[in-house]
Design a protein around this nucleic acid. Structure first.
Lengths: 223, 223
DNA sequence: CTTGACAACTTACACTGTAAGGATCATCAA
DNA sequence: TTGATGATCCTTACAGTGTAAGTTGTCAAG
């Protein structure tokens, strides 16, 4: 009798669930997300989702996999610097397309084969460029640190609301914290790209120096 | 009649609560933390804490403040590079002393006067070093990105348990993802300091180049 | 002793993830 | 056609969460 209602929805699938999950996360925020809200977006009950994923953690991991799988390793015949920059830019663009999910994405430790394949390509990129095993590993890490931090900052507005403690107004800011006030101009969202590029190029420049003149002393080694 | 029990505890205070909160967070993890567990550690009821903090968010913000207030800005008469390195190292050491709390700490947007005072000192450090307003802002950000990412990675083990998806064993890792396997040696906790120092020095080297020869073209500007 | 303020507690509510088991439905064998 | 077997989805229930609202205990001032 009441089954007449249920024909308006196609059968659930991992694809549907994940697509809806991304929408709910971006709409409600990462902490505002819940299995019940996801179910509502899907037009089903919360427990139905558990037939496709054993837990919320598994679902979230599937989301990470789905995003990482969209990424590609740039062709091997390009210079390593181009490739590194492309990989970093691609990842950043992908993360910023899902700002509310980004905090989970960047702090997730990738263990699955699909993710490891991408990781392997990225680290291999450095070895192709002439860095040894150790330098490749550390360069990858350094670049990853920078990328991770940047994404977190750039997407921070979506992760947590405004602070609850006593904030200072613009007037007080300019008077008591002049350096912060002056820097604020360059902290706006419109400046994200330029700031990110600058830091990225700094790291890449330094890496290029290292791989170009492996024998020559660097600044830090000289002093 | 049952009041005989309650004399074994001093009156609650913000100091007591915060100290206990740090302990509970490190013991139970950030997600494992709850007001009820904190209350249990304090020997009181959960709602008693709300007499001292209007919400859990306020409590967490007080924790951040407490940590930031411990930090100091290095003396002005030191070279800017020394000062920058000291500030970064201090912050990293502080964050790593509270690994479970670190994810909250680094993603928290500091708005309170006490935190802003420290921030102002850090940005001012660059201006003292001869960077202009814009460069100071961007250098601060770049260094902050790197620092943030590094801390998150270094403390990641405390934030989230092992992955739930299908992981690969060492045998498979070496066969299918040789670059990752080779890099793994340098990803262990024992290598954190060295990797961090390398990336940090790379950024500082590049900054030193920029501030030293403001007219001379950099590598990235030349190409 | 009374009064009042404050600190701590009690209760209750809406929400969370998910364990356990029941209902429905498509598919295939007899 | 019938019966059985899964796959899929739903219902109920439970222990846990943050916290709003109201209640009690404690202690100093009048």
């Amino acid at each position: 009798m009441e089954k007449a209602i249920n024909k308006k929805r196609a059968k659930l699938s991992r694809d549907m669930i994940e697509t809806a999950a991304f929408e709910v996360i971006e709409r409600e925020g990462l902490v505002g997300f819940s299995m019940r809200k996801l179910a509502q977006a899907l037009g089903c009950e919360a427990m139905s989702i558990y037939h496709h994923y054993p837990s919320q953690a598994h679902l979230f991991e599937a989301l990470v996999e789905r995003l990482i799988c969209e990424l590609e390793i740039p062709p091997h015949d390009l210079p390593w610097r181009h490739r590194a920059k492309a990989v970093v830019s691609d990842y950043r663009a992908m993360a910023r397309a899902h700002p509310a999910f980004a905090p989970f994405l960047v702090t997730y430790r990738m263990n699955s084969p699909k993710c490891l394949k991408w990781l392997d390509g990225v680290i291999g990129l450095f070895e192709d460029g002439g860095f040894g095993k150790e330098r490749s590993a550390r360069m990858f890490r350094a670049l990853g640190y920078y990328l991770m931090g940047a994404i977190l900052d750039e997407t921070a507005g979506y992760a947590r609301g405004p602070s609850a403690v006593t904030t200072v107004d613009d007037e007080q800011l300019r008077r008591e914290f002049p350096y912060v006030a002056a820097a604020g101009t360059y902290f706006s969202t419109g400046e994200f790209d330029k700031t990110f590029e600058m830091g990225l190029d700094m790291l890449l420049d330094e890496m290029e120096r290292e791989v170009a003149g492996s024998g020559r002393p660097t600044l830090s080694a000289a002093r």
